Simulated assay, not measured.
Amino acid sequence: MITTRRIATALSLIGAAFILYIGINYLIAPESIATGFGLPEWPTGDAAAFMNLKGVRDTVCGILLLALLALGQRFALGVVMVVVALIPIGDMTTVLAYDGSTAAAFGIHGFTALLVGITGLLLIRESVASAPTPA
């Protein structure tokens, strides 16, 4: 039986795996993944260290999501996911502000923000619905 809990768990795992994949790729092979971000140009030379920063940020986010899920902290995971949805919104607005790809801005970053936010809301809703009512 498909339940909100199973959907939220699956979306959480998929989201964590996806952001871990992105983060690790930015750390080990940024040149192969960076072009898909949507910006018209990437930093070169010493400025290319910013791709490493993105890799660290994304990897830590993935680990955080998995840790909260593994610890059964579903409400906290929901709150974190709603807040973390601001990261792809920031990425989307950055791509748009720097004349990057509109398709990547909305199709990658906007869609990611929507999925992460919905997953967070599902987790919060599930936790609130299953909370015991005070006597």
Rank of each mutant, 00 (worst) to 15 (best):
I7T: 07
A34Y: 01
A129P: 02
A105N: 13
A17P: 04
A129F: 01
G38M: 01
N25Y: 08
G78M: 05
M51R: 04
V56K: 11
L115Q: 14
G72H: 01
L86V: 04
L96I: 08
A29F: 02
Y26V: 05
A103Q: 15
L39V: 15
G110E: 14
Q73V: 02
T59E: 02
M92P: 09
I63L: 07
D91G: 09
I108M: 05
V95W: 14
L114M: 09
C61P: 08
L68F: 05
L96V: 09
T59D: 02
A48D: 12
I22H: 04
A76R: 04
T112L: 15
G15S: 13
E31L: 03
T102G: 11
I33V: 07
T119R: 01
L39E: 12
L121N: 06
R57S: 15
L77H: 00
T119Y: 03
A70S: 10
P30W: 07
Y21D: 01
S32H: 12
L66K: 02
A10N: 03
A131K: 00
G15F: 09
G36F: 03
G110D: 14
A16G: 14
L71Q: 13
A135K: 08
S130W: 09
P30E: 05
L20M: 15
L66Q: 12
F106H: 10
G72V: 09
F111S: 12
S127K: 03
V79P: 01
P88A: 00
Q73M: 07
D58R: 09
A48K: 15
R57M: 13
G90A: 04
T102Y: 07
T4K: 09
I24W: 09
F75S: 00
T119D: 02
A131L: 05
T4C: 14
I108R: 14
I28R: 12
V79N: 06
V79Q: 01
I124N: 04
A49M: 05
F37S: 04
L65S: 04
S12H: 12
L68W: 02
T133K: 14
T59A: 08
A49P: 09
G120D: 10
P134G: 07
L69D: 11
F75C: 00
G107K: 13
G55K: 12
I89N: 05
A76I: 03
V95I: 10
V60E: 02
A48L: 09
F75Q: 07
A34C: 09
L13G: 03
V60H: 07
L96F: 11
G36Y: 01
P132W: 00
A76S: 13
H109P: 11
I19N: 12
A47F: 03
T112Y: 06
A105L: 11
H109I: 08
V128N: 05
I14D: 08
G110Q: 08
L96R: 14
A8R: 00
T133I: 14
A17K: 11
P30F: 06
A10I: 06
V82H: 00
D91A: 13
I89A: 12
A135D: 14
V56M: 10
S12W: 10
T112E: 15
F18K: 03
L20K: 07
E31H: 02
F50Y: 05
G100H: 06
T93P: 03
A97E: 08
E41P: 00
G38C: 14
